[in-house]
Computed example of a mutant assay.
Amino acid sequence: MINVFVYGTLRKGEANAKLLKSATCIAEQCWTNGLLYDTGYGYPAMKQAPFSRVFGELYALSEADLTRLDQLEGYTEGGTNNLYERIEQTVYTDKGTTIAYMYVASKADLLQRKILNGDWKEHNLLLKQSGTVLYFAYGSCMDQKRIGDAGVAHHFRNMLGVGLLTNYTLRFTRKSTKDRMGRADIVEEGGYVEGKVYNLPIRVLEEYLYGREGAPKAYRPTFVEIEINVKKVQALTFVVTKKEEETAPPQWYKEEILRGAEGYLTVDYISKIQNHINSLKKSKLKIGGM
Results as ranks from 00 to 15, higher is better:
Glu194Arg: 05
Tyr198Asp: 03
Val187His: 01
Ser271Gln: 09
Gly190Ile: 11
Glu213Trp: 11
Val230Thr: 14
Leu200Met: 13
Arg212Val: 10
Thr241Gln: 05
Thr241Pro: 05
Arg259Tyr: 14
Glu245His: 11
Glu256Trp: 05
Thr173Ile: 00
Gly263Arg: 05
Arg183Ser: 08
Arg259Gly: 15
Gly263Ile: 09
Ser176Pro: 09
Ile287Ala: 13
Lys242Ala: 07
Asn199Ile: 06
Thr241Tyr: 04
Glu262Pro: 12
Pro221Val: 02
Arg183Ile: 08
Asn229Gln: 15
Ile277Met: 13
Arg212Gln: 15
Asn275Ala: 07
Lys243Cys: 08
Ala235Met: 00
Leu200Thr: 12
Thr266Pro: 04
Tyr253His: 09
Leu285Cys: 11
Leu200Phe: 12
Val204Met: 13
His276Pro: 03
Ser283Ile: 08
Phe223Asp: 10
Pro201Gln: 14
Gly211Asp: 03
Ala248Asn: 14
Glu225Leu: 03
Leu285Asn: 12
Thr177Met: 13
Thr222Gly: 03
Arg220Met: 04
Ile287Leu: 12
Ile257Arg: 00
Arg183Ala: 08
Phe223Val: 13
Phe172Val: 04
Ser271Lys: 08
Gly260Met: 04
Arg174Asp: 14
Asp179Met: 02
Ile257Met: 04
Lys243Asp: 07
Asp185Gln: 08
Tyr253Lys: 06
Pro250His: 15
Glu246Ile: 06
Gly288Lys: 15
Lys217Pro: 06
